[in-house]
């Protein structure tokens, strides 16, 4: 048995035979990036390896002179003494699992992933492995997602109800991934224009460039100062809630699209009128199913409810599981 192929260090998850890090949180020589969210793709590394589809998103996020090497899905290449390959993770556009092979031993680091259908990115691919590094963001059995197409219908109904009441429907959601997914799913219901907070505009453009079909959009800031938003749907990052930017939408109804909205208390505490359960992470059944699908004998759980997942895998599923301490977004992510 070889030593651990991937191990936690101060700079991030490190692969000794390949001499590279996966989603490191401190500057390193060679960083293999699973996806473009800020807690996984940080500044300051010398070379970034990422999927082709992640590249445009990383270029927006990182400095101009960052060296980003685009990689094909499912095409192993050599890095140091290890073979690595990228495989779709279904989380956001370009998101990847990283498969690492060395001396016949296979590890897969999943980054963040989901199993649900998502028109904005390639579906999750099961990659058989010996050791599987999984996320655990929603590792509690109450987290089960309904089909997003149905949730998009609820969002559309709410938007219509706001329009009838002369309100602006302001939907908060994360700017990368969630916003585009909702805009794509809403196509089943309408072709009306949705308005975007400035932080979302370049990311929506990037998805359009990648060929993702979404509702027509316009930037809020491009509208005249006194524009009447009554009846409109506005997408904004959660940080805009309660800011003076919100004033132009009065009277408004607010919603939040997140897996956390499965719990009433989470919505009520933040003071949103409506919560829509939409997540880009694996729900509880999907976490368990994925562990079974990979056939991994050993599982390492990173951010989220690692304690619950690890105990459940050990005691109920009979899989050798341990927590793996990382610096990823964890409990607030999604």
């Amino acid at each position: 048995m070889v030593a651990d192929l991937i191990r936690p260090t101060e700079r991030g998850l490190y692969c000794p035979p390949g001499d590279f890090y996966i989603d490191p949180w401190r500057p390193v020589e060679r960083a293999v990036i699973t996806h473009a969210h800020g807690d996984h793709a940080r500044w300051g590394h010398r070379i970034y390896y990422a999927s082709h589809a992640s590249r445009p998103l990383l270029e927006r996020r990182l400095s101009r002179d960052a060296l980003i090497l685009g990689c094909d899905f499912d095409k192993p290449f050599r890095l140091g003494d290890a073979w690595i390959s990228f495989h779709p993770a279904g989380h956001i556009l370009g998101s990847s699992q990283v498969r690492v092979e060395y001396r016949g031993c296979v590890w897969v680091a999943s980054g963040d992933y989901k199993r649900d259908v998502d028109p904005t990115c390639e579906p999750f691919q099961v990659v058989p492995c010996d050791t599987f590094i999984t996320e655990a963001t929603f590792a509690l059995p109450i987290y089960r997602w309904e089909p997003v197409a149905r949730v998009a219908g609820e969002i559309h109904q709410w938007w219509r109800a706001c329009a009838r009441a002369g309100q602006t429907a302001v939907l908060f959601c994360y700017a990368l991934g969630k916003a585009q997914r909702i805009l794509a799913e809403l196509l089943a219901y309408t072709r009306d224009t949705a308005y975007l907070h400035g932080a979302m505009v370049p990311l929506v453009d990037a998805y359009r460039d990648a060929g993702v079909a979404m509702l027509p959009t316009a930037s809020v800031s491009a509208m005249p100062r006194n524009h009447d938003f009554a009846g409109a749907l506005v997408l904004a990052p959660p940080s805009a809630a309660g800011s003076s930017w919100m004033r132009r939408f009065r009277p408004e109804s607010t919603g939040f699209a997140s897996g956390w909205m499965r719990i009433r208390g989470n919505r009520r505490r933040r003071g949103y009128d409506r919560g829509f359960v939409v997540s880009d992470h694996a729900d509880w059944p999907a976490l368990l199913q994925t562990v079974r699908d990979t056939g991994a004998r050993r599982v390492l759980a990173t951010h989220g409810r690692t304690d619950v997942l690890v105990r459940y895998l050990n005691e109920v599923e009979g899989v050798d599981a341990q927590p793996l301490v990382t610096d990823y977004g964890g409990e607030a992510d999604d």
Binding site: I142, I263, G265, R305, V308
Partner: peptide, 24 residues
């Protein structure tokens, strides 16, 4: 069919027993 500890962990996270049971 879930273990008791898992229900309690879930309840601690939800904070409302009626809601926890309904969701489970």
């Amino acid at each position: 069919g879930m273990p008791a500890w898992l229900l309690e962990e879930t309840y601690a996270s939800v904070g409302d027993l009626a809601e926890t049971l309904a969701l489970l």
